[in-house]
Design a protein around this nucleic acid. Structure first.
Length: 227
DNA sequence: GCGACAG
DNA sequence: ATCTTGTCGC
């Protein structure tokens, strides 16, 4: 899963990279195949903001047991700029992915996919660069508007940006705030929603996101204690 | 011009 | 993302 990657030198170059790579996004999946393994990716930052830990956990899609995990300690590769967020975490996430033993069949990213100003959020970027199907699950919106989905788990409503439906605002648990699901790469929107629901039997956020979040936070603390 | 703005 | 106290609820 090793993939060459070069961070852009500035905002203008980053935008050009997105405009170029967006053409490679695939908005549909191979078919009605259910992935056997699903990966969660997340990053934790040190208080100083100059260091980060990227974590990837791989779960059995049925039992949701963690079957593999990996971390990578590094530095932000780009300043945080809304819309260019992926460039910040991409190198560290790719490095963590390289350390996996198990090849995940789907990536669940902490951030948006095509629900992005140029239709190329973190989930698209990771999907296109690795070639692995990917979906974006954001906790807050970046672009688009919607009308409140019902209050029950499974209720959803279209996330629209202009004329386009760029995602689904999905209620993963009764009464909780909805999450924003969008296609990253090589999967359809309906299937993406289906996958997210399968990953949220108990909490608002996918188990993949939760396990990856715990792993990178724990690794960050461990790294501080040492050196 | 002003406000919004994934993590 | 991270900082940060108490508070409401199961």
């Amino acid at each position: 899963m090793t993939v060459p990657y070069r961070p852009p030198a500035d905002v203008a170059e980053a935008r050009r990279v997105q405009e170029e790579l967006r053409a490679r996004v695939e908005l549909v999946g191979p078919g009605p195949s259910v992935p056997a393994t699903v990966a969660g990716l997340d990053v934790a930052y040190a208080q100083s903001g100059d260091r980060l830990v990227a974590a990837v956990t791989v779960l059995d899609a049925v039992s949701l047991d963690v079957v593999d995990e990996a971390v990578h300690v590094g530095r932000p590769a780009f300043p945080y700029v809304p819309g260019l967020f992926a460039f910040r975490e991409m190198p560290a996430l790719l490095a963590a992915l390289d350390r996996l033993t198990v090849r995940p069949e789907l990536l669940v990213c902490d951030g948006h996919g095509v629900a992005h100003p140029r239709r190329f959020g973190l989930a698209c970027h990771l999907g296109v660069v690795t070639g692995v199907p990917a979906i974006g699950v954001g906790k807050t919106p970046l672009v688009g508007s919607w009308t409140g989905p019902g209050l029950r788990r499974g209720d959803r409503s279209a996330l629209r940006d202009g004329d386009e439906v760029v995602g689904q605002v999905l209620r993963t648990r009764d009464g909780v705030r909805p999450v924003f699901v969008s296609v990253g790469h090589r999967i359809g929107l309906d299937e993406a929603v289906e996958r997210v629901l399968a990953l949220t039997p108990r909490y608002r956020l996918p188990e993949t996101t939760r396990t990856a979040d715990r792993l990178c936070r724990q690794a960050l603390v461990a790294h501080d204690k040492l050196g």
